[in-house]
Amino acid sequence: MEQNIELAKTRDFGEIINDTFVFIKQNLKPLLKSFFTICGLLLLALAIVQSLQMIKVYDLQRQIYTAASGSGTSYNAGYRFGYQYGQMAGQYLLSFAVMILFYTVMLITILSYIALYKEKGNIAPTTEEVWVYVKYYFLRVLGSSILLGLLLMLGMVLCLIPGIWLYPITGLILAVIVLENAPFGYAFNRGFKLISNNWWLTFGCLFVAGLIAGLGAMVFTVPNYIIMFYNLLVHTRASATSSVPLVFITTTIQILGQTLLIIPLVTLALCYFNLTENKEGTGLLNRINQFGTTKPHTDLPAEEY
């Protein structure tokens, strides 16, 4: 039987990527159960909000096509369409807010699962245990994510390079908050200390894991692109009504592709453990301290005298 993966150990680039998939494979059922149980409602809300948003966009596109084909190309028609697009700002804000909540809860869920897995001695935690952690860390991680998001946006505006440099550091800060139960100030300083002299390795691992997740998620977006082109080609009112269920189904399938973000989140945790082991060796010290205190595992029956 394959031994459960040890988190607290040093790894090179290939080992981090490989162990990401080993961990997901070994914990697939309990990990997905925790994810869909805790994040499922937000996942559904995101699918509904984005479906309504897409239906509104398709409807406006049909109106523009109809106006351009007839006599509605006047200033008043253009003003009306501009006003309607402006009315959609509320929908975009709602979609953005739900998305932020979903990504925050997802990040806490996966990192909490990993934290509990380590605490329990490489044993998968229950969904109830993960939920307790999610409730505990939610406000702290949400506030920290907003601050770090603003910092990252500022870095992107400043010639892009500062934003790229901050990208892996912001991820580590959030990982420290959950995996070490740390306040934001401590996690902020620790994130910079951990990544010193290891920026390229951490960035490379997160970039590759994100790229794999992104390419995999593209498969889920294909149905949505098909319905989008269909709605662009068919501009009748009947098609607007008949396409509503199809839009919801394809959007839901696309949203389900977000589950692949589990991959870079597991990679982020493994990068954190790799950095802490490189600098502190806490996992190695714990294993040394356990020598002579644990009984060897054996399938042999006890000796009888």
Rank of each mutant, 00 (worst) to 15 (best):
F96C: 06
T170Q: 02
L152V: 13
I169F: 04
I64P: 01
E2D: 09
L93Y: 11
M88I: 06
K135H: 12
L116Q: 13
R62Q: 10
I24R: 03
L93K: 12
F273H: 15
E119Y: 00
L246K: 04
T221V: 11
N289P: 00
F203Y: 15
R62N: 13
P301A: 10
F220E: 04
F96N: 07
N231I: 03
M106V: 11
V49W: 00
N181W: 03
L152R: 11
L154Y: 10
V57Q: 10
R62E: 12
L42P: 09
L174A: 01
A238N: 10
L256P: 01
M153Q: 13
A302T: 09
V141W: 05
A240Q: 10
Y83P: 01
G163F: 07
V105C: 05
S145H: 07
V134K: 03
I161D: 02
G40Q: 11
R237Y: 04
R237Q: 11
F21E: 09
I169D: 01
L147V: 14
I195Q: 05
I123Q: 13
G40P: 15
N189G: 12
L300K: 11
F229M: 12
N27V: 06
L60N: 05
I226P: 04
I48R: 03
L44Q: 05
M156S: 08
W199F: 08
Q87P: 02
T267E: 01
K120T: 10
L284D: 08
I108C: 13
S74P: 10
S242A: 14
W165P: 08
E15W: 03
L154R: 07
A115S: 15
I100R: 00
K193Q: 09
F273E: 10
L147R: 04
N274F: 05
G78D: 05
E304K: 12
V157Q: 03
I55F: 08
L52C: 07
G90D: 06
L111V: 05
S51E: 06
F229G: 10
V141N: 03
Y230T: 13
L139H: 07
K56Q: 04
A68P: 00
F248Y: 15
F13E: 12
A240W: 02
